[in-house]
């Protein structure tokens, strides 16, 4: 079963005034375990596609299935629940909760899901170990470097065991060493645990490491290349 299945996705902004066709019939399927980058210049529809895949926006037409579930017609609150369970988000500017510690940030979504404390503690310990931040578990995000914060964001995204991780320009604010370190961790998680990653990026460091690169041009898929 595909993790993401988009068929003939279209998105028109301002349909009644000055229509802007952000997506024009996009077909895209992403399978479990992929490490895919969606690339394209500004205005290509990359962000729109990412928003629709992430359940943050709805298509004007077409079908979008995530983990087998049609999400276009879900209500706002159903979508929030859906995102909580199925999608792990990693944002460009980390967006950790500044008043919570590293461990609390990692635990946050599991708390929303009311998972038992023992399970949460075990999972947090595992995740912080895998992103190399076990020693920082009790500090607040403001005391971490950008790279470390983004690793916490990855741990938070992975915590509820989502169907895939949606990473929007995750390395844009990072220096080379931090970006490389982050990508190493993501690659390892993908390779060893089969976690699906979907990136939206301009960053060649990400594109070079992606196993598949989908290029959007003017709201349509231009190229779809599998790299080795």
């Amino acid at each position: 079963m595909s993790v993401i299945e988009a068929k003939n996705l279209t998105k028109v902004y301002n349909p009644d005034t000055v229509p802007v066709n952000a997506l024009q019939g996009v077909d895209l399927t992403i399978e479990k375990g992929e490490f895919t980058a969606i690339v394209g210049p500004s205005g290509s529809g990359k962000t729109t596609l990412l928003n629709i895949i992430g359940g943050l926006d709805r298509p004007s037409d077409g079908v979008i299935r995530v983990d087998g579930e049609e999400i276009a017609n879900l209500t706002d609150n159903q979508l929030i629940d859906f995102r909580q369970k199925k999608i792990g988000f990693v944002f460009q500017s980390y967006n950790l909760i500044p008043v919570l510690t590293v461990a609390e940030n990692t635990e946050f979504v599991m708390l929303l899901q009311k998972r038992p404390k023992a399970e949460r503690d075990k999972r947090v310990a595992e995740l912080l170990e895998s992103v190399g931040l076990s020693e920082k578990k009790n500090v607040r995000p403001s005391q971490l470097s950008g790279g470390q914060q983004q690793r916490v964001a990855v741990a938070r995204a992975l915590a509820p065991k989502p169907a895939f991780i949606l990473a929007d320009e995750p390395t844009a604010n990072l220096d080379s060493a931090s970006a490389s370190n982050l990508l190493d961790i993501m690659e390892k998680l993908n390779r060893e645990e089969g976690i699906t990653f979907v990136f939206s990026t301009h960053d060649s460091r990400v594109i070079d490491r992606a196993k598949r690169v989908v290029t959007l041009v003017d709201g349509k898929i231009g190229t779809d290349v599998v790299q080795h």
């Binding site: 992430g54 943050l56 706002d76 609150n77 929030i80 629940d81 995102r83 909580q84 369970k85 988000f89 944002f91 967006n95 909760i97 500044p98 946050f108 979504v109 929303l112 899901q113 938070r156 995204a157 509820p160």
Partner: peptide, 16 residues
């Protein structure tokens, strides 16, 4: 605004 949007994005519902 941004932070609240992020909280909703990662699954914090409106009631919360």
């Amino acid at each position: 605004y941004k932070e609240l949007g992020m909280l909703m994005a990662i699954g914090m519902n409106k009631g919360r």
